[in-house]
């Protein structure tokens, strides 16, 4: 069980969270101009590093806010949180 630091509620058990995948994947500016290949890249292709990985989490059973953090995928250690507190997202 991981202890995940919610930027609002503090550390909580992993079971209170939903995983949101890689952080920083921007929605295409103009989806209509994308080729099928570009669209597939956006939808389905994600980094899968061994080590530090920026990812999204939702504190589903708590404050129900999304946030980002960096986790070491080998040790599950939480390295840092970025864009910690954002309202309305």
């Amino acid at each position: 069980m991981m202890s995940i630091p919610c930027p609002w509620c503090g550390p909580r058990d992993e079971i209170e969270f939903h995983y949101g995948g890689q952080a920083g994947v921007a929605y295409p500016q103009d989806p209509h101009t994308l080729t099928d290949e570009d669209w597939a890249q956006f939808l389905f292709f994600r980094d899968n590093p061994r080590g530090a990985f920026g990812e999204r989490w939702l504190h589903a059973a708590g404050c129900r806010r999304w946030f980002s953090l960096r986790r070491d995928t080998v040790t599950n250690r939480i390295l840092d949180r970025h864009d910690t507190r954002t309202v309305g997202q």
């Binding site: 509620c9 909580r12 058990d13 079971i15 209170e16 059973a61 708590g62 404050c63 129900r64």
Partner: peptide, 10 residues
């Protein structure tokens, strides 16, 4: 106060 899980219930 806190929102959390109690007996797996929100």
């Amino acid at each position: 106060c806190a929102q959390t899980l109690l007996a797996r219930t929100e």
